[in-house]
């Protein structure tokens, strides 16, 4: 019988997932605020925020290191430039 044991990655579990969850908290509030205030004239902003939410959420669930770094970097850039 072949055992497939998932490799435990301390960097992801101890640092990247908590960091992504931290940003996901902020993103959740941010996205509700943006949709509620209906800044539809800045549609790109709503789309970009929604993509950030989806990216962060899936990165936390999939625990892919590259996806975690990219989604966090993307949302931080979005926060800085929007």
């Amino acid at each position: 019988m072949k055992h497939t044991k998932k490799h435990y990655h301390a960097l992801i579990e101890h640092y990247l997932v908590p960091a992504a969850l931290f940003l996901l908290n902020i993103n959740l509030i941010h996205i509700i605020y943006a949709y509620f205030n209906g800044s539809w004239d800045r549609l790109w902003h709503l789309v970009a925020l929604t993509i950030a939410f989806a990216a962060l959420g899936s990165a936390v669930l999939l625990k892919n290191q590259r996806l975690l770094w990219c989604s966090m970097g993307y949302y931080l850039l979005l926060l800085a430039y929007s």
Binding site: L28, I29, I32, Y33, F36
Partner: peptide, 16 residues
């Protein structure tokens, strides 16, 4: 107090 995003934001604030 989270009063800048309507009832949904308030509900999220209450749960969190």
């Amino acid at each position: 107090f989270g009063d800048f995003g309507g009832l949904l934001l308030k509900a999220v604030y209450a749960i969190l």
